[in-house]
């Protein structure tokens, strides 16, 4: 009997096939089975939705209803404003977090502690009811108004979401600034650059490149969290949907309408984030042309190398 345990040593050179010998790949029956099961599961769930008590015509009808589109517009506006506010606060407090001044450092720490440590829904409700604490907003020569008139549901939503996001971004910015090596700061000082110039021209541009991928995540999260504003009577999309289904009773249909729009929004943002990460997520070893794309203003040198 020939040994099968060591086929290599029993195959003589004379028996070797030619170079065009057919190759049979290993079969993976397990993959087919598991794949089949998953497809089956999806089909079952899909069927349940299809034949369940969902009137798909209603979903289709309200998908483009004016109220929903307007609501989605508010959703986008709240998200965008809150993100901008969050980024501004994140940079301001992130820089303060590293200040020489212990009071400023403490203030930034306090900000993060409070706003990262409490639920954002709670913060929204507090902003919405802020008039109970500060009945009037009075800045001499600038503003003198009743707080309820100033903090509309929209303002409360933007403040609530933006200030909360800012507390997360503060930590991100602090980490980003800390990761720019200290030597570059010293080099800038020996060239005579002031602390402000060093921050703006040397530290922050490198920080920005590091935190841009994080901002993509923030944007996606913000779009979804904006739905919390529905609880403070802000007429964004979820609130609009709720007002409709209180009347017509098509609860699940209208929630699905919202789901479709949120998914559409987050998909667009995810694609954007993918491209952002492709361009900024890498380390400094990116090639010259790619970095030029980032620095649209980085013109070609006026004098090019002679050699």
């Amino acid at each position: 009997m020939q040994s099968t345990s060591n086929p290599i040593s029993t195959l003589s050179l004379a028996d070797l096939p030619g170079p065009d010998v057919a190759i049979r790949r290993l079969k993976h029956p397990g993959r087919w089975i598991s794949g089949g099961l998953v497809i089956l599961l999806i089909a079952v769930i899909g069927r349940a939705f299809a034949v369940g008590q969902i009137q798909w015509t209603v979903v289709g009808e309200f998908l483009t209803a004016g109220v929903i589109i307007t609501g989605f517009g508010w959703t986008l506006l709240i998200s965008a404003c809150a993100l901008v506010l969050g980024v501004l606060l994140g940079f301001a407090f992130g820089i303060m977090r590293l200040s020489e001044n212990p009071i400023l450092r403490f203030a930034a720490w306090l900000y993060v502690w409070v706003f990262r440590g409490t639920p954002v829904l709670l913060q929204l409700l507090i902003w919405f009811n802020i008039a109970l604490v500060f009945p009037k907003l009075y800045i001499p020569g600038l503003i003198d108004a009743r707080m309820v008139d100033v903090v509309t549901p929209f303002v409360a939503a933007v403040l609530g979401l933006g200030v909360n996001e800012g507390s997360y971004l503060t930590e991100v910015v602090r980490g980003g600034i800390g990761s720019v090596d200290k030597g570059q700061k010293e080099a800038a000082h020996t060239l005579g650059m002031t602390p402000g110039q060093t921050m703006r021209r040397i530290i922050l541009p490198q920080t920005l490149r590091l935190i841009l991928p994080v901002l993509g995540n923030s944007a996606i999260g913000m779009l979804k969290f904006s739905s919390l504003a529905a609880t403070i009577a802000m007429g964004e999309m979820l609130n609009a949907a709720q007002r409709i289904y209180f009347i017509n009773g098509a609860v699940i249909e209208l929630l699905f309408v919202c789901a479709v729009w949120y998914l559409a929004g987050t998909t667009v943002l995810s694609i954007g984030q993918y491209y952002l990460e492709r361009h900024f997520g890498r380390d400094a070893a990116t090639t010259t042309t790619e970095r030029r794309w980032f620095k649209g203003w980085a013109r070609r040198p006026a004098v090019t190398g002679e050699a």
Binding site: G183, Q184, A187, T190, L191, T194, Q206, R209
Partner: peptide, 19 residues
């Protein structure tokens, strides 16, 4: 800083601006 710019400094680890 204006005074410091009168003294050129070359560091052991170069400290070039990476961006």
């Amino acid at each position: 800083r204006a005074q410091q710019s009168q003294l050129g400094m070359v560091f052991q680890h170069f400290n070039l601006f990476a961006h």
